[in-house]
Design a protein around this nucleic acid. Structure first.
Lengths: 124, 124
DNA sequence: CAGATGCATCGATATCCGTCAATATAGGGG
DNA sequence: CCCCTATATTGACGGATATCGATGCATCTG
């Protein structure tokens, strides 16, 4: 016997597998979101982002190479990935390029997961 | 001439690159966190997680195969990755395995990024 | 214009990862 | 016990990606 919903709210139930659940995210939507999470799925990039995001102001690219222990081309590559994922923004000023975390971007990504609503989540 | 901080609060400044910023995350910490974000960095897994997380109760594995358009072994593999990343938990009941999103896990990951604090972020 | 410096791009290499078909395991029902 | 169904594991393959050295391009300084 099959039940009526792929989900159970009555975990005592004995049945399973109904009309197989509409995915809340399309493949295309998921692919787009994926770029955001994928940007944080590498230790070097995670450290770079956390380094940028945890600073009150902007960070010069030149001060990012040594802390993450990767070569300058590698850091440049990772910063590009973070930028293209919309997690950081940058601006050239003179010889240097300054980075900062895009406010609210993380919230966007998390919101798309469709988690049950909870106590507020707003970034200025 | 070099300035005093790798960070700028005075974007008009003309200098750069000081003592090169302590990374807030160690390589090991970053690697651990990475597993969480990496689990969400694939479209199939993102759809699976969103499918599970957006349901009020638990979800039977059998109702997850068709919506994501992957083969059963592939879905099984992805569910394992989500489980090992601590994003979902599961329980066998009879023939079927029921999944649910681990409450608060996403908040843990986001909190570790070191973003500037903002209006509340607490999950029951 | 010439040199120096910051950052990006290229080419090569090694590793990782998503995917499926085939097969194994495990529980339930006759 | 044997079969059926649900989920997991294995093996193979193709494509993505992290990394670095070498090099290119841009900007500043003199």
């Amino acid at each position: 016997m099959k039940h009526e919903l792929g989900v159970i709210q009555d975990p005592e139930g004995d049945d399973c597998c109904p009309a197989p659940l509409e995915p809340p995210l399309s493949e295309a939507q998921a692919a787009a979101l994926t770029r955001g999470f994928a940007a944080l799925s590498d230790p070097a990039r995670l450290r770079l982002f956390s380094l940028i995001a945890s600073q009150p102001g902007q960070v010069c690219a030149c001060s990012l190479v040594e802390p993450v222990g990767r070569s300058q081309p590698t850091v440049s590559h990772h910063l590009k990935v973070l930028y293209e994922a919309g997690l950081v923004d940058k601006e050239r000023r003179g010889s240097w390029i300054w980075y900062w975390a895009v406010p609210g971007r993380i919230d966007e990504l998390v919101a798309a997961l469709g988690l049950p609503v909870h106590a507020g989540s707003s970034r200025p």
